[in-house]
Design a protein around this nucleic acid. Structure first.
Length: 125
RNA sequence: CAAGUAGAUUGCCUUAUCGCUGUUCAUGUAAAUGAAUGGAGGAAAGUCCGAACACCAUAGUGCAACAUAGUGGCUAAUAACCACCAGUCGUGAGAUUAGGAAAAGUGCAACAGAAAGUAUGUACAGGUCAUGCUGUAGUGAAACCAGGUAAACUCUAUGUGGUGCAAUGCCAUGUAAACUAGCGCUUGAAGGCGGCACGUUUGAUGCUAGAGGGUAGGCAGCUAAAGUGUAUUGGUAACAAUGCACGCAGAUAAAUGAUAAGGUAUUCCCGUUCUUUUUCAGGAGAUCCUGAAACGAGUUCAGGAAGAACAGAAUUCGGAUUAUAGAUUUACUUAAGCA
RNA sequence: UGGCCCAUGGUGUAACUGGCAACACGUUGGUUUUUGGUACCAAAGAGUCUAGGUUCGAGCCCUAGUGGGCCAA
């Protein structure tokens, strides 16, 4: 699997996002929080993922863009390890709930922990 | 040199790996894959003016409301910009000004003061036949001046129709032209129409409210534009004309990046080279020479450490506003400064 | 994208037409009480979000900004 993250893997449907926040479950590994919902869609990808940073915590657009880029990058590099053996299509939204600007290595380690938690949670049910 | 004034330019670089996005081409039924090429700013920011563009009736009349306010120029247009005049501030280079009208009218002026706008009291002096007739004193920001105040109302002149790309046009998907209450159906509900009136026009399977059902995807608008760079000419200048070259982001839970390594401007630390300053001692005798010490300043070289500010397009332009580490550079000023 | 409103002691509010920034709670000290509370007495605490301007004089008027809140599609 290639380390890609193109338009088809992005969560873009407004309707699906509203459904995700209304019905989805969540796990968190501070400063990240993952909201997920098993669903189906037409494109042949295992998951659609979006990232989000609160305007309340980061007032400047430059800071928000930087954090979202770091989150997308760490998702792109690590998704293959976890999602190749998914049996169900998922919608994900990763939120940044911290209040300080992170470094790349921190985001990567927490992202890995986050998806470890996610896998143990879905294997329970 | 120091202190200062007014501008102008710039505001990280290289390599490797892995990505994102627009366009074009190739392969492919398609999904997709590959290649080439483009991909944030001087403020993209806040949203204070002015326009373009789109729709509402190509936009009516009056009132109201709002904006502007020396003169001339410039511009698509402006409250921006340029030149000049005048006022104020500064030694000066320069800075700054909502800079029309107080003889159309209404209002306002605390305290002090006799009196604050229909004036004229006290004391002293002068003057007169006589009298606030004249001057001075005293209060105050202002005391008779056709006073001040218009960033008080107002008047004058000029200008402004409204809504905004979530405009607007089209395609696709889907539901409920159902239910309840009120108003109305040519004797006119309601809308176009923005604060009001007039006027005009549309108008019945209609309008308003309640409760409820559905959609919330795509395409166009969407980037070639009052465009950018440069040269010449005209103009004091803003700016204009002409030639040549370039073809310059287009995302939409929102691209333009991430990581690693190296480097540059610059800053700091330690050592070092040279110059200078101060102190002490000795010599000469006028303003100097020699030696020692000290820390301060500048500077050369080597090593080490840190190492880029403010900030992210969202229909598009023109201006002004605010934020901004540092670097480069032009012109000019100096009363009191140092050599 | 467009529009509207607010900012005054630590907190919540006043200040009329421009003329000495007021009140309550809180704070500090004292009296009363065995102690604490209550009650009473006294004191401190601000120059009105920032920078300019108009004016003799600005919390109030004007301009620009900063921060906060709200509304519409």
């Amino acid at each position: 699997m290639r380390f890609t993250y193109n338009k088809k893997e992005k969560l873009k449907s407004k309707k699906l996002i509203e459904q995700l926040f209304a019905e989805g479950k969540s796990v968190s590994a501070y400063p990240l929080r993952l909201v997920f919902l098993p669903t189906t869609f037409e494109d042949a990808v295992p998951a659609k993922t979006g990232v989000s940073v609160s305007k309340r915590n980061f007032k400047k657009a430059v800071d928000r863009n930087r954090i979202k880029r770091l989150m997308r990058e760490s998702y792109r590099l690590n998704k293959a390890i976890y999602f190749n053996n998914l049996t169900q299509q998922y919608a994900f939204m990763i939120l940044y709930i911290g209040k300080d600007k992170p470094k790349f290595i921190e985001v990567v380690t927490r992202m890995k922990l986050l998806f470890d938690k996610f896998q143990s949670k879905i294997s329970e049910t």
